[in-house]
Amino acid sequence: MQYINLLYILSTVLLIIGLRRLSSPATAAKGNIIAACGMGLAILVAMFDPIENDQGNYALIIITLAIGSVLGLVFSKKVAMTAIPELVSLFNGFGGACAVAISIIEVYNFDAATSIGARATTYMALFIGGVAFTGSLIAYGKLSGKVNDWRSGISSYFNLIWLALCLGLIGYEVVAMGQIEYLPLIILAVSLIYGFTFVLPIGGADMPVVISLLNAFTGIAAALAGIVYDNMVMLLGGILVGSSGTILTVLMCQAMNRSLINVIVGGFGGSTASAAG
């Protein structure tokens, strides 16, 4: 049992091969299955991996895994083919929410011995996961027609200021460490709001690009959480999704003959800019 975490290496390799095959038409279906095997193996290893301060709680883990699997299968079987992109966005939001859930608990588990670097890493996982979560929900809402496009001339300035507020609060909390009890919850709230305001001004037709970008964010949040737990498969899998998701986002923008900045900053003369580009 003590050597079981060596199997993490195998699951990392499976994830890389799976992603590679997914990017070529002839092998894509097999690639998806290989990646799924890698994920399954990683989850299995995570359950039996020898860790410090192990309390078990296997009943809860198995029940929640079962509930999540059933819900995931039901969602993916029931969805209409045309509604798949919005479902992917919803799934991505759930992944971001998972990153938020674990990092908010870890933030409250900090003690005096926690280094600045570890605190900063956890807060960045919280922030990026939070943006991926609420941003994906808005993208889902826009694709399914529940959220209308809303745009105002000040929205990109507002977003810059709000981003500075998020990072400033995180910087203050990382340095001041836990002097204000509710500050982590305030950081959580401003991060979640940033996810909303980040995606809200972007046009509904650009949502696939945004989903790909938010998917990369979830990957980065997973990688940061991997540093927190000192877990290599989370770290490598997360960065892999983070970097390949970023490149995929850029490729999708190129396919539309636009730049990523142009998509994110939104409709400010979007059509003229794309004509010029």
Partner: peptide, 13 residues
């Protein structure tokens, strides 16, 4: 597919 892989964060949970 890469969105499914980003669910690797479940290991942390």
């Amino acid at each position: 597919g890469s969105n499914a892989i980003s669910g690797i964060v479940i290991i942390g949970a």
